[in-house]
C-alpha cells in the first residue's frame, strides 16, 4: 500500500517536470547552436570579403567614367590605348582576350572530347591508369611554367616557321590550348562517366554500334556537362595573365593578324599596374579593364548555371 503510494507520487512529480525536461538545453543542443553559429560566422566573413571586393573593383573601375569623364563607348570601342596621353580605347585588349579565349577553346574542345571518349568508352583501363594521372599532373602545373615553355619553345618555333617576332595571338592560343586541355578533358570525362550505364546498354541491345551509341546517346546526354567543361576552360583562358603575357608580345594595338604582338585585358593589367599612380587616369583605366574581367567571369558563371538548369529541365519535361 505504502509502496504504491510512493510510486504514484514519483510518477506525478515526473510528469510535472516534463515541460522543463523537454525544453532544457543539453550538450547536444548546445553543440547544435555552436555549429550553426560557427558556420554562419564563416559564411558571413566570406560574403563580406566577396562583397567588398566587388565594391572595390566596381567603384575603382567606374571612376574612369565618373571622375575622368571618359565616355563608355570610347572606352569599349576606341582602339587607341595610351593612358598617359588620355587615350583609353580598350578594344585591342578586349579583342585580344576574346580571340585567344575562343581560339583556345575551339582547338581544345575536339581534342578534349576525343581524349575523354577514349578514356571512358574505348580504353577505360589505359584511361584510368595512364591518362588520368597525366591530366591531373597537367592541371596542377603552375601557369608560369606553361608561359616559360611557350617562351622557350613556341615563340622561337613560330618565329622560325611563320617569321616575325614569334610573339602574338597564335603563340598565346597554343599555350592556352595546352593549359585548358586538361581542365576541359577531366570535366568531360566526369560528365561522360555520369551518363547512366543503362543508356548504353539499351542502345547496344537495339543493335546500335558502339560509335552510334557514343555519338547519339552518350555524348548527347553529356552535352550540358561538356558545355560546362568548355566554359570553365574558357573562363580559365580568359583570366590567365602570366603565361599569356609571356608569349603574346604585349603591344596594346589592334591585332592585325595572328602572328603580330598583341595584348589581352589580363596581360595589359599585369604589365601596367606597377607603373601607375593611384587615383590617376592611367590607374583608373586599368581598374576598368579589371571590371571587364570581373563582369566576364560573372557572365561565365551565369552561363554555367543556365546550362545546368536547361539540362535538368530537359530531363524532367
Amino acid at each position: 500500500m505504502e509502496q504504491t503510494n510512493f510510486q504514484l507520487k514519483k510518477q506525478k512529480s515526473q510528469s510535472n517536470d516534463w515541460s522543463a525536461r523537454l525544453h532544457h538545453a543539453t550538450r547536444a543542443t548546445r553543440e547544435d547552436w555552436m555549429g550553426k553559429g560557427i558556420s554562419y560566422l564563416c559564411i558571413g566573413v566570406i560574403i563580406l570579403v566577396v562583397a567588398s571586393m566587388l565594391w572595390f573593383i566596381t567603384s575603382k573601375g567606374v571612376a574612369t567614367f565618373t571622375q575622368n569623364h571618359v565616355s563608355l563607348t570610347k572606352f569599349l570601342f576606341g582602339t587607341n590605348w595610351a593612358p598617359d596621353q588620355g587615350h583609353i580605347g580598350a578594344l585591342p585588349m578586349i579583342v585580344g582576350s576574346f580571340a585567344v579565349t575562343f581560339a583556345a577553346a575551339i582547338v581544345a574542345t575536339p581534342f578534349a572530347v576525343g581524349t575523354a571518349i577514349f578514356m571512358t568508352e574505348i580504353s577505360p583501363n589505359k584511361g584510368r591508369k595512364l591518362l588520368q594521372p597525366v591530366i591531373e599532373l597537367l592541371v596542377g602545373i603552375p601557369s608560369v611554367v606553361y608561359g616559360f615553355i611557350g617562351l622557350a619553345v613556341v615563340v622561337p618555333f613560330m618565329r622560325h616557321v611563320v617569321g616575325g617576332s614569334g610573339f602574338g595571338i597564335i603563340s598565346a592560343t597554343f599555350v592556352l590550348f595546352v593549359m585548358v586541355l586538361p581542365t576541359i578533358t577531366s570535366m568531360t570525362v566526369d560528365s561522360l562517366r555520369a551518363v547512366p550505364r543503362h543508356f548504353k546498354e539499351a542502345s547496344l541491345a537495339l543493335g546500335a554500334t558502339r560509335w552510334q551509341t557514343v555519338s547519339r546517346v552518350i555524348l548527347r546526354s553529356a552535352t550540358p556537362g561538356i558545355l560546362t567543361a568548355v566554359i570553365f576552360g574558357m573562363a580559365r583562358a580568359f583570366g590567365e595573365a602570366l603565361a599569356v603575357q609571356m608569349v603574346i608580345g604585349n603591344a596594346a594595338i589592334m591585332p592585325k593578324n595572328l602572328i603580330s604582338p598583341a595584348s589581352t585585358l589580363t596581360s595589359q593589367l599585369t604589365t601596367g599596374i606597377g607603373d601607375t599612380i593611384d587615383g590617376t587616369l592611367p590607374n583608373n583605366a586599368l581598374w576598368s579593364l579589371a571590371l571587364i574581367l570581373l563582369l566576364m567571369s560573372l557572365f561565365f558563371n551565369a552561363l554555367v548555371r543556365v546550362i545546368a538548369k536547361r539540362g535538368q529541365l530537359k530531363h524532367e519535361r
Binding site: 543508356f199 539499351a202 541491345a205 537495339l206 546517346v217 546526354s221 530537359k314
Partner: peptide
Amino acid sequence: IRRHIGMVFQRPNPFA
C-alpha cells in the same frame, strides 16, 4: 543479331 533478337531490361531504360 541484336536487331533480330531484341532485349528489354529489368529497369525501364528509355533514353532522355
